[in-house]
Design a protein around this nucleic acid. Structure first.
Lengths: 197, 197
DNA sequence: TTTTTTAACACTAACGTTTGTTAGTGTATT
DNA sequence: AATACACTAACAAACGTTAGTGTTAAAAAA
């Protein structure tokens, strides 16, 4: 077989990672084999190890790439001078975009992080916990300012984040509404469910 | 080792199934091994096969037990003479109860069905698709009667079901609010997000 | 430009584990 | 006496990964 084909500015390693994300999404991390991944990449299994250290490294990279993107966005949004409800809506839209346009990595990061090995596992768990707390803080701020209903903030976070991960079934569905419509419907229901009066 | 301990009205097979559900939930179906399950049950791996046909049979049973319970409840609710929004709320509460009190099986059924083998795989997929359609029908009825906002019904279904599966993180969280509180908060946000005006 | 050197990368073969599962045998319970 | 059930031993297949060798593209030297 020939070499792994690369386009400009995208390394062979990145090709592997991206195909791994797709495979892990479809089969699950444990059920996906390196030989299968190699097939998809167009190379023998052993050759993958010229580019990566292990199967688990692939999962590490996928998970932390995603996590870091969300943390960065959170940093941005927290400092904006807009209402809590607007911050929430902005965050929500960012998550929805992620689920629509970077589906494979986001899905894997969400569902397969259990199979990370330490110290990556506990690192990611901590990151995720902190991230959820920052969202909860925005919500609590909104409740204090009476923009948002009096509800349990952690519960609201849990609903938000998991509702978004439901876009998974949108991807699988036959008659899809457009991404834009999906986004607006989700905002309507979720922000509508939080808004005071 | 001795025999598998059973209590009244619960067969050895059912003991295995229930411990399998817990194990599959914690490790994922593929990552969980029969030797591990045997350890938990308190028996050698080979002995499990006096009670079950295969590892996959365990998954089949878990998934279809759950699916059938929900379908049965749907049959009940559809025929009640109450508003669409009330039907939805009732269904929601049933799902929330399931996630709180039968967590292991429900979680496994939700996340590990990918690893079913045919014909069970396609059977379950069809069942799930139909189930979602029946929920969507209730929502569309509610929209027609102006009880519910004008939104895309399948999207609302997707949000509802996935929001509920978020109870998973409630289980994992340190400072849990009570199950009752969780239920009421979820109803507030989700039904609130759907209600017209 | 042409040639030589080097580094990147793909190959085959095999390793040690772990996997689900079966066969066959013995031992308790009915 | 018969049935239910647990045991030991072993199987074939699949797994992630390594070692060692060849090959091709890129960098350096001519």
């Amino acid at each position: 077989m020939g070499r792994i084909k690369t386009e400009q500015n995208i390394s062979r390693k990145e090709v592997i990672i991206q195909k791994a994300a797709t495979l892990f999404k479809e089969k699950g991390f444990k059920a996906a084999s390196m030989r299968e991944l190699a097939d998809i990449v167009g190379v023998e299994a052993a050759s993958l190890y010229n580019h990566i250290k292990s199967k688990n490294e692939l999962l590490n990279i996928i998970c932390f790439d995603v996590a870091n993107r969300y943390i960065q966005k959170m940093d941005e949004i927290e400092n904006e001078k807009i209402s809590s409800l607007d911050k929430l809506a902005k965050l929500l839209r960012y998550h929805i975009h992620g689920m629509i346009y970077h589906f494979d990595e986001v899905y894997v990061s969400d569902r397969e992080w259990k199979h990370l090995d330490n110290p990556y596992l506990s690192n990611l768990q901590t990151q995720r916990r902190n991230y959820r707390k920052r969202i909860a803080a925005i919500i609590e701020d909104g409740i204090k300012k009476k923009e948002i209903k009096k509800i349990d903030a952690p519960t609201a976070v849990l609903i938000m984040l998991h509702a978004i991960s439901g876009i998974e079934s949108w991807h699988r569905s036959k008659q899809k509404i457009s991404g834009k419509e999906l986004e607006e419907n989700m905002i309507t229901i979720l922000i509508g469910g939080l808004k005071n009066k």
